Simulated scan of single mutants.
Amino acid sequence: MGRRFQELVFTPLVKQHQQERGSRRQYERMAEQSPSGSALGPDEQAFIALRDSFYMASVGETGWPYVQHRGGPKGFVRVIEPGLLGFADLRGNKQYISLGNFDHDARVALFFMDYPNQTRLKVLGRVEVHEHDSQAPALIESFRPEDKSSVVERVILIHVEAFDWNCPQHITPRYTAEEIQEVIAPLTERLAKLDAENARLREELRARSKIERA
């Protein structure tokens, strides 16, 4: 856990609960040993590059948090530089809740999940929206996905403030269709070979049976 993450989320009330429940000293030691910067390192950058989805929380004018899911091909969230992420915001159901929340408060929390390996990376940042400004056309074009049917409405940049690798405990492993196919590919290949071998043997038996009846 980075020291900056603790500075942002370990408020006095949070620390009070940690003290009452016996974990405060543990996190104090972690803070003493943690780096103070917010830049994403090689491990964080590689992890994000392999994700095909993430969850993003924002806060609206009523004070209620709102969590939105974003998905795409692996690497659709780009690490532009160690402290800056970006992704194409595609046209969806046109509710624009997150977009309105950004106008109220630019702060967001992101969860990047690797369910098979029970790994979670949390990122805190501030949003920068590019839709009608002078930078938008070039950014939208550079983030345009291969699927031309997807309409890119804007590009969202996220300036990283802090990050934390979370405990794997209680993360239920889940697998995408692609990940399952990768695992069972050797079995599928083996079954195909066995089917071909069985077909060849049946044909040999039919041919032998014809010879014996002749």
Rank of each mutant, 00 (worst) to 15 (best):
Q45Y: 01
R25M: 10
A49Y: 00
E44H: 11
F47P: 07
S53F: 14
H17F: 14
Y55G: 11
P73G: 08
P35K: 02
A57C: 11
E28G: 09
G63E: 01
A46Q: 09
M30C: 12
E32I: 07
Q18E: 04
G60I: 07
G71K: 06
D52K: 05
L84S: 07
L40F: 07
D43C: 11
D52L: 03
Y27D: 02
E32M: 09
M56L: 15
E44F: 13
A49D: 04
Y66R: 14
V67E: 01
F47L: 04
R29A: 09
V67S: 00
V59K: 01
T62W: 08
K74Q: 10
R29S: 09
R29D: 09
Y27I: 02
K15L: 13
M56T: 11
G22K: 10
G75V: 04
M30S: 12
R21D: 08
H69E: 10
I48R: 12
Y66M: 13
V14A: 14
E28F: 08
H69T: 12
L13E: 15
H17I: 14
P82C: 04
P73F: 08
D52E: 08
P12G: 00
W64K: 15
F54K: 00
F76G: 00
Q45C: 08
Q16V: 06
G75H: 00
I48F: 08
R24E: 07
A31S: 07
R78S: 00
V79G: 01
V77F: 00
E44L: 14
A31G: 05
E61C: 06
L13F: 14
E28I: 05
V79Q: 03
S58T: 15
Q45F: 03
E81T: 07
R24D: 07
R29Q: 12
A49S: 03
Q45P: 05
D52R: 06
I80Q: 10
D43K: 15
P65W: 01
S53C: 10
Y66S: 15
G75Y: 00
G41R: 01
R21P: 06
E44V: 13
L84F: 08
I48N: 10
L40P: 00
E81H: 05
S36V: 11
A57P: 06
Y66K: 14
P82H: 05
D52M: 04
S38V: 05
Y55C: 13
Y27M: 04
G71H: 06
G60W: 03
G71A: 10
M30W: 12
H17Q: 15
T11W: 04
Y27T: 03
Y66W: 15
V59D: 02
E61W: 01
I80E: 13
G37S: 03
R21T: 13
Q68M: 02
S58W: 07
E32G: 11
S36K: 13
Q68P: 02
S58L: 05
G72E: 04
Q68K: 07
G75F: 00
V59Q: 03
Q18M: 11
